[in-house]
Design a protein around this nucleic acid. Structure first.
Lengths: 197, 197
DNA sequence: CCCAAAAACCATACGTCGTATAAAATAAGT
DNA sequence: ACTTATTTTATACGACGTATGGTTTTTGGG
């Protein structure tokens, strides 16, 4: 890793730090890109070279979070549970995170749900969680627990769509009752379909 | 219906006509809101009072299309087929429309997939198709063909998410092979889940 | 060490979306 | 016909994201 790349990564992190501090203080909309650039002490054009759209900052933040959860996820994957239980545990884990930072998560989900890149496979704007989902689903196919007439990537997209949709519905319903988005139900729906029982 | 309401409706249709002509000539992005206002011979502020965001014009267009398809849909609903077959026919019908106007449909789907209103229930930006979906699913529950531990509205949201996700994947894959987005498969997935075979 | 080539960065202007505001025009009710 | 409420208009504005053209920093080779 050259000096250049190291410096770039450093700047990237500094931008992300600055942005997240501002977001959490004033909210996503109230913070302008110029303000973030100023806080990170770079020009606006430079900021845009690192994060091509404002929401990309949230993606970077999410990637950090998933990196921090890496150990938990690995433990979860090493467990001998079935595919359904694995998916549930993974999504519930992320559902808990969603509960803590509702406002920002909502913006993230909205962007994520509609980003073209999700359907093409541009890795720079990948969420981090979908790679894990694909792994679980792929293994599930090999074990025969999951139908294999659809590719793991497509299944991932579908499951992610369902999850994000459920997340948005939960966010839209103001009265959460403190129980968070119940993504286990989504997994069951995804597994069993709407026909069975 | 008062003169005022009639005039408003008339203006609305004139705007929609102007916008769609321009969109189909130059593409969605190349047409500015000012240009549309000019073409419809109103001020920009007035345009925004009718269509609060640019994509709302696409929603209006889609509502027109669904209104035109109304007879077909009614025939489809009168048929005695099961819920699965009904859903398939309905979605395939709309899939064919998608095939014709790919570019605009993509913009529409992107907006629709991410519009908050979808999760709240603001009827002004409803698609027109989701009402029908809810009807089919609700009847399916009464007949015992569909599980009833989830509300028809939630099921609609989920199915719509899956369909839009499939639509976007199809659009992302440049080589369509002329067969359109295969939404029948989505219906099967939705019905049977990923577990069964 | 120095110098060119390449990459990163900067200041700035610009186009567009969508909002706000205050004035002008149109409709409705009496 | 006069007042009142609604709609339309002109205009300015803030913010996002793009484009341009020049300046600094880094890299690699003599």
């Amino acid at each position: 890793m050259s000096r250049r790349e190291r410096k770039k990564e450093e700047t990237r992190q500094r931008i992300l730090d600055a942005a997240m501090v501002l977001f959490q203080r004033q909210g996503f909309d109230a913070v302008t890109m110029e303000r973030i650039a100023e806080e990170a002490d770079i020009a606006k054009a430079t900021l845009y070279s690192y994060f091509p759209v404002k929401e990309a900052l949230l993606v970077g933040w999410m990637q950090r979070l998933t990196a921090e959860l890496r150990p938990d996820v690995e433990a979860l994957l090493r467990g001998q549970a079935g595919t359904r239980a694995r998916l549930k545990r993974l999504l519930v884990l992320f559902g808990r995170i969603a509960q803590e930072r509702r406002a920002l998560i909502e913006r993230y989900a909205l962007f994520r749900i509609s980003s073209r890149e999700r359907f093409c496979g541009d890795p720079t704007l990948r969420s981090g969680i979908d790679g894990i989902l694909t792994r679980i689903l792929s293994e599930g196919q090999q074990r025969g627990e999951v139908r294999n007439d659809v590719s793991p990537e497509e299944l991932t997209n579908h499951l992610e769509s369902l999850s994000l949709s459920a997340l948005m519905m939960w966010l839209a319903a103001a009265d959460d009752g403190g129980q968070g988005p119940r993504l286990e139900k989504i997994v069951d729906l995804f597994f069993d379909g709407i026909g069975g029982q």
